[in-house]
Amino acid sequence: MKSLMELAKIREEAMKKVDIRNDREGTRIVVGMATCGISAGARPVLMAAVEEVRTRNLQEIVVSQTGCIGICRLEPLVEVYKQGEEKVTYVEMTADKMKRVIAEHIVNGKVVNEYTIGSVK
């Protein structure tokens, strides 16, 4: 180690690796991964979320999964929790929709209304 900057660089890289273990208040993307969700295609959605968070290097975001959210006919479901905001539930998700949600909602703060539960009849 020759400088503090070198150390800081290693730290920054390594932070991404262990960040998930910190208690944090940031945004959470939760994918419903019960049997109904998985059979409706939740896995690709989850993978897309993980991939997108990785490529965009979004440090404060936790991607996690949960069991049955309870509206099986609209699976795959994704919930987004942002601090100080109402929970947003997206329904009938796909990998591509997930990427758009991350770009528009997570990064730019604009809810993608057409995918939300409120927009389905």
Partner: peptide, 11 residues
Amino acid sequence: ITEYIAFDGYK
């Protein structure tokens, strides 16, 4: 060692 560094190690 990088995990230790991530948690402020060697700082």
